[in-house]
Amino acid sequence: MITVEHLTKRYGPVLAVDDVSFTAEPGLVTGFLGPNGAGKSTAMRMMTGLTPPTSGAARILGKPFAALANPGRRVGVLLDASAQHAGRTGRETLVLAALLTGVERRRVDEVLDTVGLTPAEAGRRVRTYSLGMRQRLGLATALLGDPDVLILDEPANGLDPAGIRWMRDLLRDFARDGGTVLLSSHLLSEIEQVADRLVVIGRGRVVAEGTKDELLRAAGVVVRSLDDQALAAELRRAGVDVEAGVHGGLSVAADAETVARTAAGAGVLVTELRPADSRGLEELFLELTAADAREEVSA
C-alpha cells in the first residue's frame, strides 16, 4: 500500500510536483503515466525518502519510507537502472544488498533466475551490461528482500518486446500474490496491459486517475452509421462533443446508450458502436497532458 497525500516539490520557481495525491492498493498494479519531465521521478524519489518534499507526505505500508525498519525487506525500489557500480559484477551487487538486508545468500541465485540473468552474465561487471540487463539486475535487487511493495521508475526502458512481456507477467504475479506495484512510464503502450489502475500526471499535477476502463469511458465511444453526418449533427444538437474518427466513423464523448438513443431518434442506422480502444486512450493521454502544457504556457 502506497499513500501519497498532497505531495509537492518546488525547485525555485518551478513546481516539479504539484499537490499529487493517490493511493496504490495491494493486489493491483498502478501505472504512473506521464510525459518526460512530468514529475514522475521526483514524486517517486519523495516516496522513497531520497528527496524531501516541500509539502505533503508519502507513506509506504502506513509509514514514511525512512521510518521503515530494514526497508529493503518491505519495499523493492528501482529508480534508475544505470545507478549501479560499473566496476562490480552483477552478482556482487546483489550479494551486497543481500548482506545488508539480511536475506539468505541463496536468494541471490533465485532472483537472478527470476530476472533471467545467467550465472555467466551475473559474473560480468555491470560496465559490460546493456540497459536491458541493467534493468533486470535492478529488478533483481528490488525483488531480493521479498518485499510487499515495488516502486519502479521506467523499468521497461531498454527492454526488448519479449522482456517487456516477461516483466508484465512478473509484476502481474507479484500483484496477484498481494503485492503493491507502482510503476512509471512515459509510454502508455508499455503499461496499459499490465496496469490495473492508471494515475496520469502532467506538469507535476494528476490530470486523470482511474482504471483503464474508467479512463476509456472518459475517452468515449466510436460509432459508425449509414449517415455519419446526420448523426453527428444530431449529437451536437444534444450538446455532445463529436469528432471525425481517425479511421472513419465518429469519435463521441458520450456513453454508448446516449449515442444509440440519439441515433434511434434521428432514424440513423448504427452499424458499429464500441468503446474507444487504447488508441483512444493514447489520444486522451496526449490531450490531457498537452492541455496541461498549454495552460502552463498561457499562465
Binding site: A69, N70, R73, R74, L100, T101, G102, E110, D113, T114, V115, G116, L117, T118, E121, S130, G132, M133, R136, L143, D146, D148, A162, G163, W166, D169, L170, D173, F174, D177, G178, G179
Partner: peptide
C-alpha cells in the same frame, strides 16, 4: 541474455509478520 526465464516470482509468504523484520 538469451532465453527469457519464465520462472515465476518466488511466492510471497502472506504469513510473514512485520515483527520478524528488524532494523539493519
Amino acid at each position: 541474455m538469451t532465453a527469457v526465464d519464465q520462472t515465476r516470482t518466488t511466492r510471497r509468504t502472506g504469513a510473514r509478520t512485520t515483527a520478524e523484520i528488524r532494523p539493519v
